[in-house]
């Protein structure tokens, strides 16, 4: 413990890897590797140690101006404090949900919040239609309004088992358990190899920095 100085400059929102590792599926060395990744992402446009939405978009799309409904929603959910930026702790805890070993319940709950566009506590019909339209627009696909209505109707007839016109968390969970493919986006295989992709040199660099 006494080997490493505690006063080196860290970015705002930095949290100790041991704390984050205890709360997530990541090991301490994986959290350290994620810090290397975080530093890259958070300095790509504005070098302030925080991931801004433009930096997130730049990483995802190689284009800081490309907007996408779902990328926006994911950014907003990562931004737990809702202050317009993603801090390191938020980044690690949120990515933890995408870890292959994260509990399925966490993935199901995250996907629900992702689709609850208006934060009503339900996935509503209009929201679902809006998301389908966004995907079609993004993909340059054209479906008639009738077909879109049919798709949304069919989904609701399967998922809205209480028949009240909206999907609550309980219905969502039952629906996903019947159709596990619905949360395939919630697992990122990369996270198992994060120390290979982003080897951490935290210990050696910290000691060197502090001794200079």
């Amino acid at each position: 413990m006494g080997c490493y100085p505690s006063k080196q400059v860290k970015t705002p929102g930095y949290e100790e890897p041991t704390v984050l590792a205890a709360e997530t599926p990541f090991t301490v060395s994986e959290v350290e590797a994620l810090y290397e990744l975080f530093k890259k992402l958070s300095s790509s446009i504005i070098d302030d140690g925080l991931i801004h939405k433009e930096e997130f978009q730049l990483a995802l799309f190689k284009n800081r101006n490309k907007r996408n409904l779902f990328a926006d929603r994911i950014f907003d959910l990562f931004d737990v404090k809702r202050n317009g930026v993603i801090e390191f702790g938020e980044f690690v805890r949120s990515l933890g949900i995408f870890h292959p070993n994260a509990p399925v319940e966490d993935k199901i709950a995250f996907a629900f919040r992702l689709y609850d566009l208006r934060h009503t506590g339900f996935i509503e019909r209009e929201e679902l239609k809006e998301m389908v339209l966004a995907l079609l627009h993004e993909s340059d696909l054209i479906l008639s309004d009738d077909v879109i209505e049919q798709i949304v109707d069919k989904t609701f007839s399967d998922a809205d088992t209480k028949g009240d016109g909206k999907i609550d968390q309980e219905e969502w969970k039952a629906f996903v358990l019947k159709h596990p493919s619905l949360i395939k986006n919630m697992t990122l295989p990369y996270l198992k190899d994060i120390t290979i992709v982003f080897p951490s040199f935290v210990l050696s660099s910290e000691v060197e920095d502090s001794e200079i």
Binding site: L41, L60, A71, I74, V132, A134, V147, T155, H179
Partner: peptide, 24 residues
């Protein structure tokens, strides 16, 4: 029509977070 709306949505590029892990 047996398409599930959520499966359709999952094709969005906004869900592909792999860009975060590509070498910068």
């Amino acid at each position: 029509c047996n398409l599930n709306a959520f499966d359709i949505i999952s094709f969005s590029s906004g869900f592909d977070l792999s860009g975060l892990f590509e070498e910068k």
